[in-house]
Design a protein around this nucleic acid. Sequence first.
DNA 1: CCCCTCGGGGACAACGTTGTCCAGGCTCTA
DNA 2: TAGAGCCTGGACAACGTTGTCCCCGAGGGG
Lengths: 348, 348
Amino acid sequence: MAETTRPEPRYGNRPTMKDVAARAGVGLKTVSRVVNGEPGVTPETERRVREAIEALGFRRNDSARVLRKGRTATIGLVLEDLADPFYGQLSRAVEEVARAHGTLLINGSSAEDPGREQELALTLCARRVDGLIVIPAGDDHRYLEPEIRAGVATVFADRPAGLIEADAVLSDSFGGAREGVAHLIAHGHRRIGFIGDRPRIHTAAERLRGYRAAMDDAGLPVDERWVAPGSTDPERVAAAVAGMLSGPEPVTALFAGNNRVTVTAVRVLAERTDRGGPPPVALVGFDDIELGDVLGVTVIAQDPAAVGRTAAQQLFRRLDGAAEAPRQVVIGTRLLARGSGELPPSSR
Amino acid sequence: MAETTRPEPRYGNRPTMKDVAARAGVGLKTVSRVVNGEPGVTPETERRVREAIEALGFRRNDSARVLRKGRTATIGLVLEDLADPFYGQLSRAVEEVARAHGTLLINGSSAEDPGREQELALTLCARRVDGLIVIPAGDDHRYLEPEIRAGVATVFADRPAGLIEADAVLSDSFGGAREGVAHLIAHGHRRIGFIGDRPRIHTAAERLRGYRAAMDDAGLPVDERWVAPGSTDPERVAAAVAGMLSGPEPVTALFAGNNRVTVTAVRVLAERTDRGGPPPVALVGFDDIELGDVLGVTVIAQDPAAVGRTAAQQLFRRLDGAAEAPRQVVIGTRLLARGSGELPPSSR
DNA sequence: CCCCTCGGGGACAACGTTGTCCAGGCTCTA
DNA sequence: TAGAGCCTGGACAACGTTGTCCCCGAGGGG
C-alpha cells in the first residue's frame, strides 16, 4: 500500500477526469479538452469521452479548476439582512448582472454587526472571490486594504466606505430627506418629528442632516424633543412616536428615516385612529414599503435595484481593468405623494 | 526561465504559505500548523510566523484547502426569487443555521425557470457544496440523481422533489387553503373565487385542492368560472378578479393562492372601493403580507423561517451521517383573522 | 558519558485540473 | 515518392494546501 493521504469520504468518491479517461481509453488532457470545448478532438473520440462522462456521472471539480486558473468567476455581496425587502431587491439586481457576466454571486448577512461584516468579507476573500460588494455595517474598512491591494475589486453600496478610498453607489439620502420634510412644510406643518436609525449609520446621519436642512431652509426651529435617532426596534419607535404626539405641543407630522421605522409608524398611527382618537398625523417615510400605495403612505422612494445594478456594473468595470480614481455615484430618489404626506396640520 | 504556466494576473500575486515561510525563516508546514492552530510550534516560532503573515497580508487560499481536504464547508440554496420576502426570510433562516455549523451558504434564484434551477443546482455541485437545499421550479429532479449518489446531501423545501425520493419540508398548503375557504364559508359565503399560481407548481395545486375540498365539505358546487389558476402576473390577476366580480352571479369572496396574488387583489379591491363602487368583497390570502395587520387582510400565515430552519437542520443531520429513509416534514399554517375574511356576503 | 526518548520542525507527495510541449500519423504538394 | 506541414492525443508540471513520515537536537536516566 503506497497509498498515503486519503483523509475522509472524499466527496463520496466522485469520478475524476482520470477515471473518465481510463474508461474512454484516452488521455487525461483529451477529457479536459472535451469538457472545455477546446478544439483538437475527433468527433469519434469526443463521443467516447462523453459516453464515459455520462456513465460515470462525472462533474468537473471547480475547486481544482479555480486553483489552476486563478479566477473564481465569483463575486461576494455582504449585506445587512436578506430578509429585508430592500436588500432582497438589491441582491437580486446584483445577481442578474453577475449572471450576465457568467459569474456566481455569494451573499451573506452581517446582521448589522461590524464584526460579522468583517468576518464575512474576509471569508469571501479567502474563497478568492474576484470582487466584493459591501453594504457597510461598520465604519472602519481598513481591514480590507490588504485584500484590495492584492487585487480584490471592491465597491461599496448604499453607504460609503469608512477610512478607505473606494467606489461607492449611494442613494441621495440627504436630498431625499430634505425634499420629504420640505413637502411637509409646504403643506403647512411647523412642528415635524424625525425618527431615524442610529446616526453611526451614514445614511441615517445624512437623512437627519436633510431634515435639519429643510427646517433651516424654512426658518423653522427644531425642538430636540422632535428628533429621535436610534434603533429601528419597533418598541423604541413606537415609544418615540407616542412621545412626540403627547405633551402640550405635539408634532403634527412625522418623517420616518427608513422602511422599518415607517412600518412601525404606520402601525402605531393606525391604532391611534382605530381608537377613534385624536386627529390624524401626517407621515412621510424614507424608502418605499409594500402596498404603500394602498395604504396611502407618502414616501421618498429609493430604487434598490438600481443601486445594486449600478454597483455591480461598476464592479465588473473594475474587473475588466478600469483604473480611474474611486468614484461615488448617487442614485436619485423620488417623492411619491399618496395622501399621508399631504394631510394638513391638525388644529389640536 | 524554467517557469512555464503562469496564466493570468493570478489573484493579483497574493502571498502563499511558501512566501510566509520564507519570510519567517521556517518550513512550509510550520506555517500551516500556525494557521490551523495545530500543536507542535514554539511560541517564539509562532510569533515570527504571525508577524510574517501580518506583514505580507497573507490569507489562506480556501480553494487549495478544499481540494486537499475534500470538504467545502459550503451548502447551496436554490430558490425562486430573492426579492420575494417569503424567500428572503427562508434564506435568512437557512443562513443562520449554516453559520451555527461553521458553514457558508450560497443561494441563487431560479426565477421560476426549471432550466435555470438545474443550471444553478449543477453549478453549485461543480463547486462541490457539501449539501443542497432546493426550492423546485421544475418538476423533474432526476438530473440530481448522480449528485446525490455521489454524496451531495439534498433536501427540498416548500415543494417536494419531482420523480426522485428525497427529504422535503413543506407548508401545509392543502390544509391551510381548506381552512381558509372553510372560514369564508362559515361567514356565510357560497360563491367563492380562487386565484392561484400555475397548477404545475405543487403548492399551487395543493391549495386549489384545498379550496375544492372545503367547498365539497360544505356541499357547495364550484362554478369553473370561479377558479383561475395561472401566472401571478398582476395584470392576469387583476383581470381574473374583475371577471369574477362581474356578470349576473359574481363571487362574494376571494381566496388568493399566494402572497403576490393577495397583494394584487388587495390593490384591485381597494381601487374598487375608492371609486365608491359596489359593496366590499371578502378576502383571505395564503401567506402573510407585510402590514397585513394594518390593512386588515385575513391570511393563512406560513412560517417561512421555520421551513428554512427545518430544512437546514435536516440537511445537517444528513451531513452528520443520518441514513434513514427520506422523509417529509409538514409545517402547519395559522389563520390570522383581521377583518377582510370576516366580511359577510354583500347583498348585491 | 552514552544511549534513548521526546518533541519541534521540515521534506515530500497528493488533491483534480489546465497550460505547455512534443510525438506520431496523416495529408498534401513538389 | 519524399518532405513539409497539420492535426490528434498524451506526458508532465504546476496551482496552494494538508497529511505522513522522518530527522535532529535537547534532556534525562543508567
